[in-house]
Nucleic acid binder design. Structure first.
Lengths: 150, 150
DNA sequence: GTATATGCAAAGGTTTTGCACAGCC
DNA sequence: GGCTGTGCAAAACCTTTGCATATAC
């Protein structure tokens, strides 16, 4: 059931927090754990909700501030998806979300398929794109037909 | 200075509005004109602001409703970019925005470079992605080095 | 004349911010 | 003990919605 655990774990992050002079609080532990335990992406709100199930009374603003800190440290990254503001682990494999701009239907594309394109972009400008947790808009097959037949 | 004008123009959209039983109001004309006149993407708010410079007193809710209508008709599409909710013309050529998740730096990639990847996705699922007005997140060359050297 | 679009105002939701207090180191 | 992080509350912001009025057809 369990996937390959990424080399980034709670202890590692906690260690780096301390090493950088940040403090390790129960809230931060819980937020880090929740974020690492999430497959795919998660909204700050959702983190707040799930975390406060374990550690009672974690404030939303704390969640926002902690996620921002984790992003500064390079562990997570944010995206603006259809569902709003979302965080995801940097570099954790996954799939690309294709969202139809017309009907909203979502499809998935294995991340392997993006490798050649990723290489191309990296060669072009040194920029290393992360497709795995970002939606890409377009038209699904059905809506494309509709469009063409008009 | 002027780019190739796309075949979609204000008159055409106005015509289709009428043909579909929608009404053509000064507000709608202005919103359509502003949207078509925009290179790249634009936020509903920005449309509202620019439009009300010409047609005084266009309400934000009207802008939202009109943009939604234009999306239904297939002229525009929306995205959630770094700057928030944005609309852009469907299928107007341009370039891909690469945004560094770390430092926020933006780079551009000519849309031609995406063609092979676009074909690949289309073959895979019939989904036709539109990269030209959507940001793609990742790490720029500089931030990538920082990341690696840690 | 009638049905649709607009403006207005209020509500809803998310994110940000300032400040006093709590708690990690 | 000092400084950082948290909670609280309020504010800021964007977007949506209901309803009366205006207006395109």
């Amino acid at each position: 059931m369990s996937h390959q655990i990424s080399e980034v774990n709670v202890a590692g992050i906690v260690e780096e927090l301390r090493a950088r002079g940040h403090r390790v609080t129960p809230q931060r532990r819980a937020i880090v754990a929740e974020t690492l335990g999430t497959e795919g992406h998660i909204a700050p709100q959702a983190v707040a909700k799930k975390v406060s199930e374990r550690v009672p009374g974690v404030n939303a603003s704390t969640v926002y501030r902690t996620l921002e800190l984790l992003e500064e440290l390079g562990y997570v990254s944010h995206a603006h998806l259809e569902d709003g503001f979302q965080y995801h682990l940097v570099g954790r494999g996954g799939h690309v979300h294709l969202v139809c701009a017309r009907c909203g239907r979502q499809e998935a594309l294995p991340v392997e398929k993006t490798v050649p394109f990723k290489r191309l972009i990296e060669k072009h400008s040194g920029f290393s794109p992360d497709f795995s947790h970002f939606s890409i808009s377009g038209l699904c097959a059905a809506c494309r037909k509709l469009q063409d037949s008009r």
